[in-house]
């Protein structure tokens, strides 16, 4: 009973028994709660991963299996039949291309428009800085719904309704507040000293930005861009309101949802999900920085 405690030099002899006992109990409790934590961690991971696993094996089963019942948790055959059925369905490939186009335009436009503002917030102390920050933050309270409907009317007036441009503009507006806040936190992360050092070494403010700030901010900016891409890639409400024939992929899937066969839907879900998985994996190190800090 006391042998453990005797090895501990700091324990005074008299109280060895009780301290050793407590300590052992505590160690046991610690190990137990550690174990419990791993169980919880695994349970939560399964909760997240199981649906992804199930949709993946569904999407890669042949169509008869997708229609079949009961389904097998361990798939017996692998097939791209369902996926290619989806990919070859009318309108899917063009809409896929449109989705990519919209997302790329969105990320480029929101970065070009938003990053300078992010930089200004990060580097300059100017009158109205806080007011601007608050305005940007508060745009979050405006639902996509309330923007989409009047913008649809506006875009009809402008003659760009039912084009990828209308969706891209809308998505840029949605992404812009995030871009501004995220880029500002990225630029804050580049020490001001480095920029000033560049200024003392012969740079103009512009060359200091290009040669020092930009290279250092680039990984963060890339992560933010990927996030913007995912945001646009996933967005469906505005896309379905602002287009009729020129559907993006989610808009196409949504508008045909209740008339489409089951394999089409499941393959579509997997198809929409897969790039996001990859992208989140690529930017996993930046997640906390991007989201956590911005939402303060």
């Amino acid at each position: 009973m006391t042998s453990v405690a005797r090895d501990l030099p700091a324990s005074p002899g008299v109280e060895t028994r009780s301290i050793g006992g407590h300590r052992r109990a505590r160690v046991r409790r610690r190990l137990f709660s550690r174990g419990l934590l791993y169980v919880a961690a695994t349970g939560l991971a399964l909760w997240v991963l199981a649906p992804i696993y199930l949709i993946t094996i569904t999407a890669f089963s042949p169509r008869p299996v997708v229609y079949g019942y009961p389904k097998e948790v361990i798939p017996s055959q692998f097939s791209t039949d369902t996926i290619s059925f989806f990919a070859n369905a009318t309108g899917v490939l063009p809409s896929l291309w449109r989705s990519v186009l919209v997302a790329v335009v969105t990320l480029v436009a929101s970065t070009i428009i938003g990053a300078p503002a992010g930089y200004a917030i990060a580097r300059f102390a100017f009158r109205g800085r806080n007011a601007f920050r608050l305005t940007v933050l508060s745009t979050r309270a405006f639902p996509i719904v309330i923007l989409s409907i009047p913008l649809a009317v506006t875009f009809i007036d402008w003659g760009i309704y039912d084009t990828v441009w209308s969706v891209a503009l809308m998505h840029t507006a949605l992404a812009l507040p995030f871009t501004i806040l995220i880029t500002s936190s990225i630029f804050v992360g580049v020490p001001k000293d480095l920029e000033e050092a560049a200024l003392t070494l012969g740079c103009t403010p512009a060359t200091a930005f290009l040669r020092v700030v930009l290279p250092l901010a680039l990984p963060g900016l890339a992560a933010a861009s990927i996030f913007t891409f995912v945001l646009s890639w996933n967005e469906v409400f505005a896309a379905v309101i602002l287009t009729l024939r020129e559907r993006t992929l989610p808009a196409l899937v949504l508008s045909q949802l209740n008339d489409s066969p089951i394999p089409f839907r499941f393959a579509a879900a997997w198809f929409m999900m897969a790039p996001s998985l990859l992208f989140i994996f690529v930017i996993r190190r930046y997640l906390l920085g991007l989201w956590g800090r911005v939402s303060r």
Binding site: P191, D193, L194, E196, A197, A198, L199, T200, L201, G202, C203, T204, R211, V212, P215, L216
Partner: peptide, 28 residues
């Protein structure tokens, strides 16, 4: 502006550019 003053400065944090080698830092 600083670039027209013929000054050079050593910063407290050193402000060594992390994306450049020592050579490129000195050559900057």
């Amino acid at each position: 502006p600083p670039r027209k003053r013929r000054i050079a400065m050593v910063f407290q944090s050193y402000a060594v550019f992390p994306h450049l080698t020592v050579f490129e830092n000195i050559a900057f």
